[in-house]
Amino acid sequence: MRYLSLIFPFLIIIGFIFWKYNKKDDKANRINKDGKFIKYGIQWEDSFYDQVPISLDTTIIIDDSNGKPLRFHQYIKPIFNGDAMIFLEKGKWKLQRFTKSAIDSLMNDDFAIARADRYQAYRNPDSSNSVKEKFANIAHRLNMADNILVIKHQRKMYIQRNGKNLLQFNINLGGNPIGHKQYEGDNKTPEGIYHLDTKFTRTDKIYKSFMISYPNKTDRENAVKKGLKPGSSILIHASTVKRKNARDWTNGCIALTNAEMDTLFNHVIEGTRIEIKK
């Protein structure tokens, strides 16, 4: 979907993010002049196991970068200390370690899932000195939804966790909603399995948005075979007052109300899997 009003604000936001991330100060870089990793806030002690709250599900398995499954006692220390963070990739929790090589690899991969979210966690570590607060922050992230299901013909969006519906929203789609998106300007909402990308509050009337990872490799290849552009900037976004009672008014995006976008922001993070069905 193309929004002329979106392009300029979006470029400003992305530019600001990378300007902020690349400021040359020791705290932001988390590597001091001696090449040592800087730590902030209270650091892990094994006695903290006795303070793990009920809200923190210790049965969750998290995969490391090599696909090795890690149990709670293996990942809690690096996460608590700010040496790593957790993110969603294809419906599974993954561990992002904040070693220099891991961060360099992340920044060299333009298609890394939840790339901005992961780098921001590296640059802005949890500096709390409260054990309770640190555990609460970790529990909140692990309690996020892990899947979004969109059924186009129902005009419904289901926010899910462990296969169960947590929330349900009515949605609006593109002006030509039947069928999978084929090319730029066809006003269709894509169908298939994607993930949510950059999450941002906007400076225009649309309020808040999540990017959807359309087009994928197959989408691009299919469009090229037909001599067409696949299109881009497919979003989940809010609605303007003018569109309050309109139906299927977008150019291919998925529209919610402003209040629903606030709720979505509180339950969903970058990297969340989204399945869009006809």
Rank of each mutant, 00 (worst) to 15 (best):
M1N: 07
R2E: 03
S5N: 08
P9W: 09
I12G: 11
G15T: 12
F16V: 08
W19C: 10
N22Y: 12
K23D: 02
A28W: 00
N29A: 12
I31P: 05
G35R: 10
I38P: 09
K39Y: 08
Q43D: 03
E45A: 03
F48D: 01
F48L: 15
P53Q: 07
D57N: 15
T59E: 12
T59C: 00
I60L: 04
D63W: 00
D64M: 08
N66T: 05
N66K: 10
N66F: 01
Y75H: 04
Y75K: 01
I79A: 08
I79Y: 02
G82W: 09
F87L: 01
K90Y: 02
K90C: 00
W93F: 14
L95I: 10
F98K: 05
F98L: 05
F98E: 06
T99D: 15
S101N: 08
A102S: 15
D104H: 00
S105M: 08
I113S: 01
D117P: 01
Q120Y: 13
A121C: 05
N124G: 00
D126P: 01
K132P: 01
A136L: 05
A139M: 07
H140G: 09
R141T: 15
M144C: 03
D146T: 12
I148K: 07
L149G: 03
I151E: 11
K152R: 13
K152A: 07
H153N: 14
Q154R: 12
Q154W: 10
M157C: 08
I159E: 06
I159K: 02
R161M: 06
N162P: 00
G163P: 04
G163V: 04
Q168N: 13
N170Y: 07
G174A: 11
N176V: 11
P177F: 05
I178Q: 15
G179E: 08
G179I: 06
H180M: 07
K181Y: 01
K181W: 01
Q182K: 09
T198I: 13
T201Y: 06
T203P: 00
I206Q: 06
I206E: 08
N216A: 03
R220M: 13
N222P: 00
K226R: 14
G231I: 09
S233V: 03
I234F: 12
T240P: 00
V241R: 11
K244V: 13
R247F: 14
N251I: 05
A259E: 14
L264A: 13
T272C: 15
